[in-house]
């Protein structure tokens, strides 16, 4: 959030009290938990920490999480651009309904998303028997993890682009067309530069969610060690094995991702497009 016209002032006595309470609250609810992750991960020294991270199942979980993000991110960026273009550049019946539909995954509990996929592709699901007949197993494989991740993070890029493109209007693009640009040139040289920061912003948030998704993935993955265990599931498995140091080592990689996400987010917001 950028600084606004609303004048910020030096706090008086009441202000100082409010700031003190807010900072104390933030310390207890945000700073301490974040610091605790790294403190617990490194408690037994760097050697143990790296041994925990390099444990084969954890390495595999990191790889699987990265792979999922690598597939999901480009698809949902593509979807976000298409959806934003369709609903901000054209008026058509049902447009408002479509905007609401895009938001559905945001309000649905991740567990519900997982259950929904189970009842579509699982053995007892709508398409399950047909898939089984064709010898295709989707549930409890990497494909299922990718599919629910696509569901859960579908709106992230779109919802950053829609308000921005709405506000920008289509004058620039119309000018490019009237100057003889074709559709691709218009998109590449006019639209894309206009939306690039919002696009990066949405992608950063989308990536954080893909890599951290737990509920939906835990329903459809089967959580098979060394095969369909993503990083959040691996953390849960290690915790249930009472391997707290291992769990925190795995968690620290995701916490680092969260810190990077916050830094990128602040940097993008400070760049002033929002």
């Amino acid at each position: 959030m950028t600084d606004s016209a609303a004048a910020k002032r030096r706090p008086g006595p009441v202000g100082r009290l409010l700031i003190g309470v807010a900072l104390l609250g933030a310390l207890l609810t945000l700073v301490v938990p974040l610091a605790a992750i790294f403190a617990f991960a490194l408690r037994e020294g760097l050697g143990v920490y790296f041994a925990n991270i390099l444990e084969p199942n954890t390495v595999h979980a990191i790889w699987l999480t990265g792979l999922t993000a690598l597939v999901v991110l480009p698809i949902n960026i593509g979807f976000g651009i298409c959806a934003a273009w369709a609903v901000t550049r054209f008026r058509f019946p049902g447009r408002q309904v479509l905007i609401t539909l895009i938001d559905i995954p945001f309000s649905v509990s991740p567990i519900v998303a997982g259950v929904a996929y189970l009842f579509l592709y699982g053995a007892q699901g709508l398409l399950g028997p047909a898939l089984q007949g064709a010898g295709i197993q989707l549930m409890f494989t990497v494909f299922a993890i990718i599919l629910v991740s696509l569901f859960v993070t579908a709106p992230f890029v779109a919802r950053e682009l829609i308000p921005l493109m709405q506000q920008q209007g289509s004058e620039d693009e119309e000018a490019a067309l009237s100057l003889g640009a074709n559709g691709w040139q218009m998109f590449r040289y006019v639209t894309l530069p206009n939306i690039r920061w919002a696009l990066v912003y949405g992608a950063v948030l989308c990536n954080a969610r893909v890599m951290g998704e737990f509920g939906a993935v835990s329903v459809v993955s089967g959580a098979i060690r060394g095969r369909t265990n993503t990083l959040p599931l691996q953390i849960s498995l290690l915790f249930n094995d009472f391997n707290i140091a291992g769990a925190f080592a795995a968690a620290s990689t995701l916490a680092l991702l969260a810190v990077v996400t916050l830094v990128l987010k602040s940097a993008l917001e400070a760049s002033g497009w929002r």
């Binding site: 948030l205 951290g212 509920g215 990083l231 959040p232 995701l254 916490a255």
Partner: peptide, 8 residues
């Protein structure tokens, strides 16, 4: 809390 995975 938005950036940190819920399992963490």
């Amino acid at each position: 809390p938005f950036a940190l995975p819920t399992a963490v």
